[in-house]
Simulated assay, not measured.
Amino acid sequence: MTPKELVLQAVSALFIDFDPEAAKKLLAPDYIQHNPAVPTGAAAIIGFIPALQESGVTATIHRVIAEGDLVVLHTTYDNAQAFGAETLVAFDIFRVEDGKVVEHWDNLQPAVPASETANGNSMTDGATEVTDLDKTTENKALVEGFVRDVLNGAASERITDYVSTETYTQHNPLVGNGLDGLAAALAAMAEAGQVMAYTNTPIVVAEGNFVFIASEGVLGETPTAFFDLFRIENGKIVEHWDTLSEIPSEMAHENGKF
Protein backbone atom coordinates (compact mmCIF):
# COMPACT_ATOMS: atom_id res chain seq x y z
CA MET A 1 0.00 0.00 0.00
CA THR A 2 1.06 3.56 -0.59
CA PRO A 3 1.23 5.87 2.44
CA LYS A 4 -2.02 7.50 1.27
CA GLU A 5 -3.80 4.16 1.01
CA LEU A 6 -2.53 3.06 4.43
CA VAL A 7 -3.62 6.28 6.14
CA LEU A 8 -7.04 6.27 4.50
CA GLN A 9 -7.57 2.69 5.65
CA ALA A 10 -6.54 3.63 9.20
CA VAL A 11 -8.85 6.65 9.30
CA SER A 12 -11.68 4.53 7.94
CA ALA A 13 -11.08 1.93 10.66
CA LEU A 14 -11.09 4.60 13.38
CA PHE A 15 -13.81 7.02 12.29
CA ILE A 16 -15.98 5.35 9.63
CA ASP A 17 -16.08 1.58 10.21
CA PHE A 18 -15.24 1.81 13.95
CA ASP A 19 -13.26 -1.42 13.61
CA PRO A 20 -10.74 -1.95 16.45
CA GLU A 21 -9.23 -5.06 14.89
CA ALA A 22 -8.54 -3.33 11.59
CA ALA A 23 -7.08 -0.33 13.41
CA LYS A 24 -4.81 -2.56 15.47
CA LYS A 25 -3.29 -3.97 12.27
CA LEU A 26 -2.64 -0.51 10.83
CA LEU A 27 -1.31 1.44 13.82
CA ALA A 28 2.10 0.77 15.34
CA PRO A 29 1.81 -0.18 19.03
CA ASP A 30 4.10 2.72 20.00
CA TYR A 31 2.10 5.17 17.85
CA ILE A 32 3.23 8.69 18.79
CA GLN A 33 0.32 11.01 19.52
CA HIS A 34 0.52 14.81 19.38
CA ASN A 35 -3.17 15.63 19.93
CA PRO A 36 -2.94 17.34 23.34
CA ALA A 37 -6.01 15.57 24.76
CA VAL A 38 -5.24 11.98 23.73
CA PRO A 39 -2.66 9.74 25.44
CA THR A 40 0.13 8.38 23.29
CA GLY A 41 0.22 4.81 21.97
CA ALA A 42 -2.14 2.90 19.69
CA ALA A 43 -4.04 1.33 22.60
CA ALA A 44 -5.39 4.71 23.72
CA ILE A 45 -7.00 5.67 20.42
CA ILE A 46 -8.16 2.13 19.65
CA GLY A 47 -9.76 1.93 23.09
CA PHE A 48 -11.70 5.10 22.30
CA ILE A 49 -13.36 3.59 19.18
CA PRO A 50 -16.53 2.31 20.95
CA ALA A 51 -17.14 5.77 22.44
CA LEU A 52 -16.61 7.36 19.02
CA GLN A 53 -19.16 5.01 17.48
CA GLU A 54 -21.61 5.68 20.29
CA SER A 55 -21.22 9.45 19.79
CA GLY A 56 -22.30 9.29 16.15
CA VAL A 57 -19.25 11.18 14.92
CA THR A 58 -18.78 11.22 11.14
CA ALA A 59 -15.73 12.15 9.08
CA THR A 60 -15.80 13.76 5.62
CA ILE A 61 -12.40 13.94 3.93
CA HIS A 62 -12.04 16.87 1.52
CA ARG A 63 -8.37 16.75 0.53
CA VAL A 64 -5.49 14.30 0.74
CA ILE A 65 -1.88 15.16 -0.06
CA ALA A 66 1.26 13.16 0.56
CA GLU A 67 5.00 13.57 0.35
CA GLY A 68 7.40 10.81 1.33
CA ASP A 69 6.24 9.24 4.60
CA LEU A 70 3.82 12.06 5.52
CA VAL A 71 0.12 12.21 4.61
CA VAL A 72 -2.14 15.21 5.29
CA LEU A 73 -5.94 15.01 5.43
CA HIS A 74 -8.30 17.99 5.39
CA THR A 75 -11.44 16.77 7.13
CA THR A 76 -14.75 17.83 8.63
CA TYR A 77 -15.94 15.98 11.73
CA ASP A 78 -19.68 16.22 12.43
CA ASN A 79 -21.41 15.19 15.67
CA ALA A 80 -17.98 15.85 17.13
CA GLN A 81 -18.89 16.84 20.67
CA ALA A 82 -16.39 14.23 21.87
CA PHE A 83 -13.71 16.48 20.34
CA GLY A 84 -15.19 19.73 21.64
CA ALA A 85 -17.78 21.05 19.15
CA GLU A 86 -20.73 20.00 17.01
CA THR A 87 -18.73 20.41 13.80
CA LEU A 88 -14.95 20.68 13.57
CA VAL A 89 -12.63 21.31 10.65
CA ALA A 90 -9.31 19.53 11.01
CA PHE A 91 -5.95 18.97 9.44
CA ASP A 92 -4.51 15.59 10.40
CA ILE A 93 -0.92 14.64 9.61
CA PHE A 94 0.17 11.02 9.73
CA ARG A 95 3.66 9.55 9.43
CA VAL A 96 4.02 6.07 7.99
CA GLU A 97 6.90 3.68 8.57
CA ASP A 98 7.31 -0.02 7.69
CA GLY A 99 3.69 -0.42 6.66
CA LYS A 100 2.22 1.11 9.83
CA VAL A 101 0.95 4.51 10.90
CA VAL A 102 3.49 5.54 13.54
CA GLU A 103 2.79 9.21 14.37
CA HIS A 104 -0.07 11.71 14.30
CA TRP A 105 -0.43 15.49 14.60
CA ASP A 106 -3.66 17.47 14.23
CA ASN A 107 -5.28 20.86 14.58
CA LEU A 108 -9.03 21.25 15.01
CA GLN A 109 -11.20 24.36 14.89
CA PRO A 110 -14.98 24.79 15.20
CA ALA A 111 -16.52 25.18 11.75
CA VAL A 112 -18.07 28.47 10.67
CA PRO A 113 -20.87 28.29 8.03
CA ALA A 114 -20.12 30.04 4.74
CA SER A 115 -23.03 32.41 5.40
CA GLU A 116 -21.15 33.76 8.42
CA THR A 117 -17.63 34.11 7.01
CA ALA A 118 -15.95 37.33 5.88
CA ASN A 119 -15.36 35.88 2.42
CA GLY A 120 -18.55 33.94 1.69
CA ASN A 121 -16.60 30.67 1.48
CA SER A 122 -16.74 27.74 3.85
CA MET A 123 -13.64 26.50 5.64
CA THR A 124 -13.42 23.45 3.35
CA ASP A 125 -14.92 24.24 -0.07
CA GLY A 126 -12.84 25.10 -3.13
CA ALA A 127 -10.46 23.17 -5.34
CA THR A 128 -9.61 19.58 -4.38
CA GLU A 129 -7.79 18.02 -7.34
CA VAL A 130 -4.05 17.47 -7.05
CA THR A 131 -2.41 18.62 -10.29
CA ASP A 132 0.99 19.84 -11.53
CA LEU A 133 2.94 17.00 -9.93
CA ASP A 134 5.98 18.09 -11.94
CA LYS A 135 5.93 21.42 -10.05
CA THR A 136 5.95 19.99 -6.52
CA THR A 137 9.53 21.07 -5.76
CA GLU A 138 9.15 24.64 -7.03
CA ASN A 139 5.76 25.07 -5.33
CA LYS A 140 7.21 23.85 -2.05
CA ALA A 141 10.08 26.32 -2.39
CA LEU A 142 7.59 29.12 -3.09
CA VAL A 143 5.66 28.45 0.13
CA GLU A 144 8.87 28.05 2.14
CA GLY A 145 9.89 31.49 0.87
CA PHE A 146 6.48 32.88 1.83
CA VAL A 147 6.92 31.45 5.33
CA ARG A 148 10.39 32.96 5.68
CA ASP A 149 9.71 36.38 4.20
CA VAL A 150 6.06 37.05 5.05
CA LEU A 151 4.91 34.84 7.93
CA ASN A 152 8.21 35.07 9.82
CA GLY A 153 8.58 38.74 8.87
CA ALA A 154 11.97 38.68 7.18
CA ALA A 155 10.69 40.69 4.21
CA SER A 156 6.93 41.09 4.47
CA GLU A 157 6.92 43.69 1.69
CA ARG A 158 7.61 40.82 -0.73
CA ILE A 159 4.13 39.35 -0.27
CA THR A 160 3.20 39.95 -3.92
CA ASP A 161 6.18 37.79 -4.94
CA TYR A 162 4.26 34.89 -3.43
CA VAL A 163 0.53 35.66 -3.40
CA SER A 164 -1.45 36.41 -6.54
CA THR A 165 -2.64 40.00 -6.85
CA GLU A 166 -5.43 38.85 -9.18
CA THR A 167 -6.99 35.85 -7.44
CA TYR A 168 -6.60 34.93 -3.79
CA THR A 169 -9.49 32.85 -2.47
CA GLN A 170 -9.59 32.81 1.31
CA HIS A 171 -11.20 30.18 3.56
CA ASN A 172 -10.20 31.58 6.94
CA PRO A 173 -13.62 32.69 8.24
CA LEU A 174 -12.32 36.05 9.51
CA VAL A 175 -10.43 37.11 6.37
CA GLY A 176 -11.88 38.54 3.16
CA ASN A 177 -10.83 37.40 -0.29
CA GLY A 178 -7.86 39.00 -2.04
CA LEU A 179 -4.80 40.75 -0.67
CA ASP A 180 -6.97 43.66 0.47
CA GLY A 181 -9.01 41.29 2.62
CA LEU A 182 -5.86 39.85 4.16
CA ALA A 183 -4.42 43.31 4.89
CA ALA A 184 -7.68 44.46 6.49
CA ALA A 185 -7.87 41.39 8.71
CA LEU A 186 -4.27 41.73 9.88
CA ALA A 187 -4.80 45.43 10.64
CA ALA A 188 -7.95 44.65 12.64
CA MET A 189 -6.11 41.96 14.62
CA ALA A 190 -3.24 44.32 15.39
CA GLU A 191 -5.67 47.02 16.55
CA ALA A 192 -7.34 44.48 18.84
CA GLY A 193 -3.97 43.46 20.30
CA GLN A 194 -4.11 40.06 18.62
CA VAL A 195 -0.96 40.25 16.52
CA MET A 196 -0.29 36.94 14.77
CA ALA A 197 3.32 35.75 14.63
CA TYR A 198 4.73 32.52 13.21
CA THR A 199 7.98 31.50 14.90
CA ASN A 200 8.71 27.97 13.65
CA THR A 201 7.42 25.73 10.85
CA PRO A 202 8.58 22.17 11.54
CA ILE A 203 6.35 20.37 9.01
CA VAL A 204 6.00 21.10 5.29
CA VAL A 205 4.24 18.64 2.95
CA ALA A 206 3.89 19.30 -0.77
CA GLU A 207 2.19 17.46 -3.60
CA GLY A 208 1.74 19.17 -6.94
CA ASN A 209 -0.32 22.34 -6.62
CA PHE A 210 -0.90 21.93 -2.86
CA VAL A 211 1.55 22.78 -0.07
CA PHE A 212 0.73 22.28 3.61
CA ILE A 213 2.60 23.76 6.58
CA ALA A 214 2.27 23.20 10.33
CA SER A 215 3.65 26.06 12.41
CA GLU A 216 3.89 27.25 15.96
CA GLY A 217 3.69 30.85 17.04
CA VAL A 218 1.55 33.26 19.01
CA LEU A 219 -1.79 35.00 18.59
CA GLY A 220 -1.54 38.00 20.84
CA GLU A 221 0.17 36.43 23.85
CA THR A 222 -1.37 32.98 23.39
CA PRO A 223 0.85 30.11 22.15
CA THR A 224 -0.90 28.95 18.99
CA ALA A 225 -0.62 26.22 16.37
CA PHE A 226 -1.24 27.34 12.80
CA PHE A 227 -1.94 24.67 10.18
CA ASP A 228 -2.19 26.14 6.65
CA LEU A 229 -2.88 24.68 3.21
CA PHE A 230 -2.04 26.66 0.07
CA ARG A 231 -2.95 26.06 -3.56
CA ILE A 232 -0.49 27.35 -6.14
CA GLU A 233 -1.24 28.24 -9.73
CA ASN A 234 1.23 29.69 -12.25
CA GLY A 235 3.84 30.29 -9.56
CA LYS A 236 1.59 32.19 -7.11
CA ILE A 237 -0.54 31.28 -4.09
CA VAL A 238 -4.18 31.55 -5.20
CA GLU A 239 -6.13 29.81 -2.41
CA HIS A 240 -5.71 29.27 1.33
CA TRP A 241 -7.32 27.14 4.03
CA ASP A 242 -6.31 26.96 7.69
CA THR A 243 -7.10 25.93 11.23
CA LEU A 244 -5.62 27.38 14.39
CA SER A 245 -5.80 26.35 18.02
CA GLU A 246 -4.24 27.28 21.31
CA ILE A 247 -1.29 25.14 22.40
CA PRO A 248 -2.12 24.07 25.95
CA SER A 249 0.48 24.07 28.69
CA GLU A 250 -0.59 20.61 29.86
CA MET A 251 -1.13 17.59 27.61
CA ALA A 252 -2.09 13.96 27.98
CA HIS A 253 1.45 12.93 26.94
CA GLU A 254 4.98 14.29 26.79
CA ASN A 255 5.27 14.47 23.00
CA GLY A 256 4.32 18.13 22.60
CA LYS A 257 2.07 19.61 19.92
CA PHE A 258 4.78 19.14 17.30
Rank of each mutant, 00 (worst) to 15 (best):
T167H: 10
S215V: 13
Q170W: 00
E233Y: 05
D161T: 08
T169L: 08
L179V: 07
I203S: 03
E221G: 10
I232V: 15
I237G: 04
N172S: 13
A187N: 14
E233K: 07
V238C: 13
A183I: 06
S215T: 09
F210R: 08
W241S: 07
G217D: 12
T160E: 14
Q194Y: 05
V195F: 02
F227S: 02
I213D: 03
K236Q: 15
N177V: 07
S215Q: 09
H240L: 03
N172F: 03
L186V: 06
G176E: 13
E166P: 08
F227C: 07
Y162W: 08
I213T: 12
A225W: 00
V211G: 09
N177G: 06
I213G: 04
T201N: 00
V163L: 04
A225I: 07
G193A: 13
A185E: 06
G208L: 01
H171C: 00
V195D: 15
E207F: 11
L179Y: 13
T222M: 01
N200F: 12
E166A: 06
G208H: 06
T201A: 08
E239D: 08
A225V: 11
G208V: 11
T167Q: 14
A214N: 07
V218D: 05
G220I: 03
A214R: 02
V238R: 14
N200H: 15
G217Y: 12
V195P: 01
A185L: 07
L219E: 05
Q194C: 02
S164C: 00
D228G: 04
V175Y: 00
V211Y: 06
A206T: 13
N172P: 14
G181C: 10
F212Y: 15
G193K: 03
E233N: 12
I237S: 05
A214V: 10
D161H: 14
A206I: 02
D161N: 15
F230G: 04
A188G: 14
V218L: 02
L186E: 08
S215H: 06
Y198V: 11
L174W: 01
M189C: 07
Y168L: 03
S215R: 04
E191P: 01
I232A: 01
A214Q: 04
Y198Q: 02
E207H: 04
L219Q: 10
G220D: 13
L179K: 08
F227R: 00
V218Q: 09
L174N: 10
N234K: 12
E207I: 03
A184S: 09
I159P: 05
L229E: 09
A185I: 05
E216C: 05
L174S: 10
V205Y: 15
Y162S: 00
I203C: 05
E207D: 14
H171Q: 02
G217R: 10
A190M: 04
T199V: 01
M196C: 05
V163H: 03
A214H: 12
T169Y: 01
T167C: 06
T160F: 08
Y198R: 06
A187G: 07
A188P: 08
Y168Q: 12
E239V: 03
A184Y: 04
G220Y: 11
G176V: 05
H171S: 01
E166F: 00
F210N: 10
Y168E: 12
Y168R: 14
